[in-house]
Computed example of a mutant assay.
Amino acid sequence: MKKIFLSAAALMLMISCNNEDNNTVTDTPETSVIAHRGCASHDVLERQLKEDPSLAKRMQEIELDTETAKAQGRIVNGVIEIPVVFNVLYRTAAENISQAQLQSQIDVLNKDFNAQNSDYNTANNPYSSVRANVGIRFVLDKVVRKSTTKTSWGTNDAMKKTSTGGIAPTSPTTKLNYWVCTIGGGILGYAQFPGGSSATDGVAIDSKYTGTNGTATYPFNLGRTGTHEVGHWMNLRHIWGDATCGNDQVSDTPSHNTANYGVPAVGHRSTCSGTPLEMYMNYMDYTDDRGMYMFSNGQKTRMLAIFSTTGARKSFR
């Protein structure tokens, strides 16, 4: 298991360990179904760190507060209910996904964050002892729809700004904004970590990987892209720490070589120190939707810490 570290130097290493890939694709249609999960949250964070030098300090303070909240037990009691605003940007009728498809995404979030998903008790899970019921509810607040001529939006937050043809967020300090649009470049979605600007706060996910019905496309048709990205929004890192045998700042997740794809075989081990069994069934890996079905207790504690009385998302309490 990994140990938590909190120095500013370590934080910067963690968030800059990969080469940057801006993925600012615009007006390039997707030509085929995506075979592997692509999440641009880490790349977007690297861009934001370059654009805003003060972001690293804010994120370091969030890390320090997270550790204090965990150590002192300043974690929210009861159930947090998060209103979700869907901002749908569409060029075709297929991209203008139905209310039923959007509601199915809310249903998935509620199941996955409350240990009510049908695959939660999957047999042969070596990490069943650390499975978590995060205990956060989501409710559909409203849907904003806007027709556009753009074929793809990229990852430079264009979909979040009216000046670039997008939709501005609704009350981002008290509502989770979820942009539904074609992103392009092989990216299923991305999220903004706590500490960033409220003007761009939320998650952006392709319509083909939202919810479980309508246009939801296999192997990402079970709504788990939403679960993964909301995990980032709640301050979770990729389980491999965005580096070979990296650190995701969670003590009960094992070291991973890198991302896993598809659905790994039971017993898949890392070649990192100690050759631990990888937690490939974790929502913060890159497996297909049918291969991920749990958060860990350590991830739960980390997520709830941002809703504490001094947490980065305390306004959601």
Rank of each mutant, 00 (worst) to 15 (best):
M1N: 03
L6C: 07
A9Q: 15
L11H: 15
S16I: 05
N19G: 12
N23D: 02
P29H: 02
P29V: 13
S32N: 11
A35Y: 09
R37Q: 10
G38S: 11
D43L: 02
E51F: 02
D52N: 14
S54V: 10
S54P: 00
M59P: 04
E61Y: 12
T66N: 06
T66K: 11
A71H: 13
Q72Y: 13
G73V: 12
V76P: 10
I80N: 09
I82H: 13
F86A: 15
Y90G: 13
Y90S: 10
I97F: 07
Q103P: 00
I106H: 02
D107A: 09
N110K: 04
K111S: 04
F113V: 01
F113D: 00
D119A: 12
N121Y: 08
P126N: 12
Y127C: 01
S128G: 06
N133A: 02
I136S: 03
R137K: 14
K142I: 05
V144D: 02
K150A: 12
S152R: 09
D157W: 07
K161D: 05
T162A: 15
S163K: 09
T170L: 07
P172C: 07
T173N: 11
V180A: 05
C181T: 09
G184T: 13
L188C: 08
G189D: 06
I205C: 04
Y209C: 02
N213D: 08
T215W: 08
P219C: 10
G226K: 09
T227I: 14
E229G: 04
W233V: 01
N235P: 02
N235R: 09
R237L: 13
A243C: 13
C245A: 06
C245S: 10
C245H: 08
V250P: 03
V250C: 11
D252K: 13
H256K: 12
N257P: 01
P264M: 15
A265Y: 12
R269D: 05
R269P: 04
T271V: 10
T275W: 09
T275M: 11
P276L: 04
P276G: 14
L277D: 08
Y280N: 13
Y286D: 06
D288P: 04
M294W: 05
M294N: 06
Q299A: 02
A305S: 15
F307N: 02
S308N: 14
T309Q: 06
R313W: 08
R317S: 06
